[in-house]
Design a protein around this nucleic acid. Structure first.
Length: 422
RNA sequence: GGAGAGGUGUCCGAGUGGCCGAAGGAGCACGAUUGGAAAUCGUGUGUCUGCUGAGAAGUGGAUCGUGGGUUCAAAUCCCACCCUCUCCGCCA
């Protein structure tokens, strides 16, 4: 949620943000609703004040053993009009708060203004894809030859866009998850969490998936739960409605969870292989910080995720997303992309975003400063990393001329010391 | 799934219709004490929000799990729901 003071005092900033993000939202209507609700509120509060004053007098009279009938009648009449106004106010209020949920976050000043992925800015890493001196295969060709992914049976069990890992292929997936978790918890200081992955509606509003991404999530019919689309949801909602003492900040959390996405609207896109699937594994990193330290911690979070890619020895680059390519709630986002030699494309393996106080306002996560002031925390998160695309890159970049896959050294201890999949 | 107990501020906990935004304690902040600290003593300390104000502040409203209801007046009474704990049942 944006800061409501902005809407009242400085709507120009929001207007510019909407323009930069190419969001078509009727801001004037919201400003008008806000005015309405404020004036109604003032009116109601005045009446309630009168009522309260009368009630107080009634109490006093009774205590003194006097007759309060006249005052009680007066108060009763007042109450009627209060009820009427209350109802109207609630209607306007509901409309207003429903509407402002659709206002996205204000992009940070360092974010380039642009339309889409072509306007993203190269930050660091590899500028050109690496060369191979033989004909490289795609990951689905390699996986089938090595019998480590079973596409047919995945489809039989669950349909298209599902993965069935097999044998040492399954072990490789598990190795990646464990490597990521160990790296971030032992070396980067994150606390490991294993959260529930069925999350109720209010959690998804808290992190900003709802209302906008409703159609991209799986919903349980009978209980209203959503299947967790990213561990960001449980990790950020852990401290919902809390006031955290400043001394406890920053909080670092890392969690492995499966992630579920309907991929609605991507029919026919990336159907081969495991680039775009309905269920995938991801280790997610989430930080809660004091707003003043937000961007410093954000850069550190990025390098924590980057380190995972580096240690795996995969070719990567870091891109700064432009205003048009960022998600709804983010103020700034970096993507880490790995080059997949077989598919010949850059794959997003991590999206690292900072939300400033936007998520915290929605989820009501605050901190008490050492001086006693209460304010919203700053939240941020990033994948560290999402496995399927790392898996793709491993198969496609680490393939050898003779059809084997070399296992990166950091994974070998998780793979019974093996150096190759063959 | 059945039976019972309970949900109050940052935390613990008292409060059964008006003088209760809420005793007491812990914590936290500031000050005194100290060479410094601990301990001790003193003072302060919920949150959200409307209006006025440049601001300091002033003055209102709301808030005791959530939503309704009764009443001039609700933390307190009534109804529904949610959650937690204990016991029983079922079960990986």
């Amino acid at each position: 949620m944006i800061d409501l003071k902005l809407l009242k005092d400085n709507p120009g900033i929001i207007r510019q943000a909407l323009l930069d993000r190419h969001e078509n939202i009727d801001l004037d209507k919201m400003i008008e609703l806000d005015k309405q609700r404020r004036s109604l509120l003032t009116e109601i509060q005045e009446l309630k004040h009168q009522r309260n004053a009368l009630s107080e007098k009634v109490g006093k009279l009774k205590r003194e053993g006097k007759e309060p009938q006249a005052l009680m009648k007066q108060a009763k009449d007042l109450v009627e009009s209060v009820k009427e106004l209350d109802k109207r106010q609630k209607e306007v209020d509901d409309k207003f708060f429903e509407a402002i949920k659709w206002i996205p976050n204000i992009p940070h000043g360092s974010v380039p203004v642009g339309q889409g992925s072509d306007d993203n800015r190269f930050i660091r890493g590899l500028k050109k894809p690496p060369d191979f001196d033989f004909d490289v295969l795609t990951h689905w060709e390699i996986a089938e030859a090595l019998d480590i992914l079973d596409f047919k049976r995945a489809a039989k069990v669950s349909g298209s866009r599902f993965i069935l890992y097999k044998g040492i292929g399954a072990k490789l997936e598990r190795a990646l998850i464990n490597f990521f978790l160990d790296l971030h918890t032992v070396q980067h200081g994150y606390t490991e969490i294993m959260p529930p992955v069925l999350n109720p509606t209010n959690c998804l509003y808290g992190t900003g998936q709802l209302p906008k991404l409703e159609s991209d999530m799986y919903k349980c019919r009978d209980d209203g739960f959503y299947l967790c689309p990213t561990a960001e949801v449980p990790l950020t909602n852990m401290h919902r409605d809390e006031i955290i003492p400043e001394k406890q900040l920053p909080l670092y959390y890392a969690a492995y969870t499966p992630c579920f996405r309907r991929e609605a609207g991507s029919y026919g896109k990336d159907v081969r292989g495991i680039k775009r699937v309905h269920q995938f594994n991801k280790v997610e990193l989430v930080k809660y910080t004091v707003p003043a330290n937000g961007y410093e911690e954000f850069e550190k979070l990025l390098s924590d995720a980057e380190r995972a890619v580096k240690l795996l020895g995969l070719p990567y680059r870091i891109m700064l997303l432009c205003t048009g390519d960022m998600t709804f709630a983010a103020a700034k986002t970096y993507d880490i992309e790995i080059y997949a030699a077989g598919m010949k494309e850059w794959l997003e393996v991590s999206s690292v975003s900072i939300y400033d106080q936007y998520q915290a306002r929605r989820a009501n996560i605050r901190y008490r400063s050492t001086k006693g002031k209460v304010d919203y925390v700053c939240t941020m998160n990033g994948s560290g990393l999402a496995t399927p695309r790392v898996y793709i890159a491993l198969l496609e970049n680490n393939q050898t001329k003779d059809g084997r896959i070399s296992i990166p050294q950091v994974l070998q201890s998780y793979m019974d010391g093996k150096e190759y999949i063959e």
